[in-house]
């Protein structure tokens, strides 16, 4: 799952660095992802995994890192 998350962030996160240089726990906002870009990441994740994030998950901290995204996806039943 994390590889797919990384691919989505690579395409939609507008990071100022290569995502391969970041660890799973590194802060994507620090790496240049804007709030507007995080919205695109959110939409792309929903398309990729064919899921809908819970309303309570639509917050900044959920999209902060590959790990936090992965934890949210697991919570709504996406297999690791």
């Amino acid at each position: 799952m994390k590889d797919e998350i990384r691919q989505v962030v690579r395409e939609h996160g507008h990071l100022s660095v290569d995502i391969d240089s970041l660890g799973d726990g590194d802060d994507l906002y620090q790496a240049g992802m804007t709030s507007h870009a995080s919205v695109n990441v959110m939409i792309a994740l929903e398309d990729t995994f064919d899921i809908e994030f819970l309303d309570s998950m639509l917050k900044r901290s959920v999209f902060e890192s590959v790990s936090s995204i992965s934890a949210a996806l697991s919570e709504i039943g996406v297999p690791a």
């Binding site: 709030s35 995080s38 919205v39 959110m42 939409i43 639509l58 917050k59």
Partner: peptide, 14 residues
């Protein structure tokens, strides 16, 4: 919309 909720909460958090 839903994406707006993420933006709004993000705006507040910062």
């Amino acid at each position: 919309g839903r994406t707006g909720r993420l933006l709004a909460r993000s705006q507040r958090a910062q």
